[in-house]
């Protein structure tokens, strides 16, 4: 995946059967990449003691409130590892 600021992404809808850091309220929803936050070990792997854990890009992804709640004018920016995201056709 090659994501840049402005890329449209969809948070994966699936619910893994282990610890993860993608909040339920963004799953399945479309947002926009704000910036790359560097590369960090994947919590899903570290919580399961998978050694070494995958190390992935983490992105700040901005969602409009209306996309998540059907109302509201604010935005919510969530920090998401690459494997939580799918590229969305623009």
């Amino acid at each position: 995946m090659s994501l840049r600021p402005g890329s449209r992404v969809r948070a994966r809808a699936g619910d893994p059967d282990h610890h993860t850091r993608v909040p339920r309220y963004v799953r399945g929803h479309v947002g926009e990449v704000v910036e790359l936050e560097g590369e960090w070990p994947l919590p899903d792997d570290r919580a399961r003691r998978i050694d070494p854990p995958r190390v992935e890009a983490v992105y700040a992804v901005r969602f409009p409130a209306a996309e998540l709640w059907g109302e509201g004018t604010h935005t919510i920016t969530v920090d998401l590892w690459e494997s939580y995201l799918l590229e969305e056709p623009s």
Binding site: D15, P16, D17, H18, H19, T20, P23, R24, Y25, L68, W69
Partner: peptide
Amino acid sequence: MSRVHDIGGQ
């Protein structure tokens, strides 16, 4: 996993 801690928006 969606567990009880995941309360954003509730």
